[in-house]
Design a protein around this nucleic acid. Sequence first.
DNA 1: CATGAATGAGATTTCATTCAT
DNA 2: AATGAATGAAATCTCATTCAT
Lengths: 211, 211, 211, 211
Amino acid sequence: MGSKERIARLKSELRKDILYAALAILKNDGRQSLSLRKIADRIEYSPPVIYSYFKNKEAILIALCELCYQQFNGCIEKNCRKLTNPEERLTAIVTTCWNFAIDEKEMYNLMWEVGSTCTDPFTQFKELGLFLNFLSETLKNLCGKKVCTEEYLLHKSQTAIAVMHGHICLNYTLSNADPKLRSRMLNETILYVMNLINDYNLTPHELNNHY
Amino acid sequence: MGSKERIARLKSELRKDILYAALAILKNDGRQSLSLRKIADRIEYSPPVIYSYFKNKEAILIALCELCYQQFNGCIEKNCRKLTNPEERLTAIVTTCWNFAIDEKEMYNLMWEVGSTCTDPFTQFKELGLFLNFLSETLKNLCGKKVCTEEYLLHKSQTAIAVMHGHICLNYTLSNADPKLRSRMLNETILYVMNLINDYNLTPHELNNHY
Amino acid sequence: MGSKERIARLKSELRKDILYAALAILKNDGRQSLSLRKIADRIEYSPPVIYSYFKNKEAILIALCELCYQQFNGCIEKNCRKLTNPEERLTAIVTTCWNFAIDEKEMYNLMWEVGSTCTDPFTQFKELGLFLNFLSETLKNLCGKKVCTEEYLLHKSQTAIAVMHGHICLNYTLSNADPKLRSRMLNETILYVMNLINDYNLTPHELNNHY
Amino acid sequence: MGSKERIARLKSELRKDILYAALAILKNDGRQSLSLRKIADRIEYSPPVIYSYFKNKEAILIALCELCYQQFNGCIEKNCRKLTNPEERLTAIVTTCWNFAIDEKEMYNLMWEVGSTCTDPFTQFKELGLFLNFLSETLKNLCGKKVCTEEYLLHKSQTAIAVMHGHICLNYTLSNADPKLRSRMLNETILYVMNLINDYNLTPHELNNHY
DNA sequence: CATGAATGAGATTTCATTCAT
DNA sequence: AATGAATGAAATCTCATTCAT
């Protein structure tokens, strides 16, 4: 494929169709049965067409993952951007993550699966980077007047993602937990994430003992 | 020993062989290339024998998962049981989990993968239940004289597992992090797990605000 | 496949059937259209069966090449072994090669094609080694009472193969040459091969100038 | 220059581009991965253009083969034309062939592969014809004052090509031969080619016995 | 009880070629 | 003149599972 052609195809409608077909299969039939053949069937084209738009299956997965991050970040923006109070915003962020993970389990799992194979998902996936920054910005506001380094905030944000992910996975495994327990788990998750920032209030001596 | 018993024992032997073959393939070649054919090759039997011991591939995965939990719990027992000081023991538990996840990534991932498909992994997998109790017991000691309900301790233990898992997954994705950052992440994980129990020291009123 | 099983299959009838099917396709349809699917069709089995007997297509080609060498060497043995006079025998060898290359062009080409990809075809393919030795033995007799080293004879034998191959390839390209020219080419080939051994009669001084 | 001419020139340019793209792919990726798609990519045109210049893939291969012969003959001209002493020139010819075959294995193989499918490569490929004549002229000079027929010289030239090709193929198969052996093989090849002309010194009676 | 034999279904991928525009 | 779009046909290979023996 010539570079001109390739660039054109990147913007193509069919490329989008392929990705959305993949997304639909992912949601309906699950990660395991996401095959090129099924994608081709769904868009009512022959399988080789796909190779005009993606190098191979891995490339599709990565692009699909990107799409998932876009949709995820879209939820976050929609639900949380408007909130100005940092506690409220952080609560909304965690809640949105939580619900996204429940409602879109296949997407959520794909995001972590593909992320694990990348060198640096936070830079590779633009929308994940945006989310990280949004989280970071929120945590900064939460600190109030205290000055935190950018690096510190990013690290805490990643930790927040980790803590949320852990609870989400736990929630997956407790498949017959009652709604009350689930709701409690969500609340706790919010709490833990909120408290991540607290140790910044520790005295230097206490901090020393921590790290 | 009657022939019946002998036969039963032999049967049980082969079952083990199958599982250990599966484990070896999992470790060496990875989850994706774990096939019945390969297992059969390794035990030098023909594929259909496997169906005498397991209903289908899924059943093998579940049993294999159990084996992984056994090995995992073995590590925990070996490294942590002897420690009597609760802080030390908890530190050892988190560290052991962390290292197991690094050294046996395939096993660790399988444990969560299969766990996600089960109704209740904590009761289905005996060794996971044992680990949960061990964690619970450790947390109890950490509380000192304060009285905590069994249920509370189990819940906190699950939360600890969640927090650890989150950090472990984050560690997986940060594939080019330097050892110093990784070491810091481990320390933080220990810290967070340790502090899980702290809110028990909150006043009832504060607790109310939490949940 | 367990090793026991694999060994059994090496002797299996079906394995032979696969190879002879491949040979038939090679002869009839040519090297380019030799596919696993066609082989499976011809033996009236499904394609995956082939993988019970051969690791992959390359393994089939190598085994097929071996079969070609066997058939080739069979011709040589049949036509030449009985001749005791060294000139007559050498003449018969060259003639047999020549005719084999004409009658079994696809086989002949495959033998060189696969041979080119091997590290050392003369040891890898037993029958090619036998042919080399037979040639070497013949050249030795041609030398008469003069003593030649084994190494020298093997080298000359390889050279003989090279000279024959060159003429055979030339013969392939001259596709509209008349039979008289072809016959003359064969005679010349015999002559050149016969003379390969002549420089052994050179004085040491002359030999020095050669190498 | 009229627009007609300009268009014709442009057309001829693109034809060249196609061939040189094919050549580059042949050299870099090998004969097997020479596809129309890849050629189109490389010239940054779409695949169908190629069909404006060539009937099908086979036609490209033939034209590519011609290009290879041009390059080959270019080497010969450059390295050998200047030498006037016939022995020196013949030595240079064989050496140049030998090195070309080593350095440009893919090209060399293609030349013989395509050559085998043509009716008469020596007339079809102009540069191969030139090479043949050059060889023939050299052999003629080697004969000295003796008179040889044109036909005889051409035949001997073809034979020389055959002998060289045989040794070159042998050199390909002996993939782990040491440089000393290879160098010896080259020397022998030179020697054999040089001696091809010698039997012209035979008496008519001896010649009769030969043919 | 054990297995050799076999397969259907399906995976990813490549390629030469066509054709409406 | 050029191409974007598309495809049919084919390639190799893997796998879980079945069943007669």
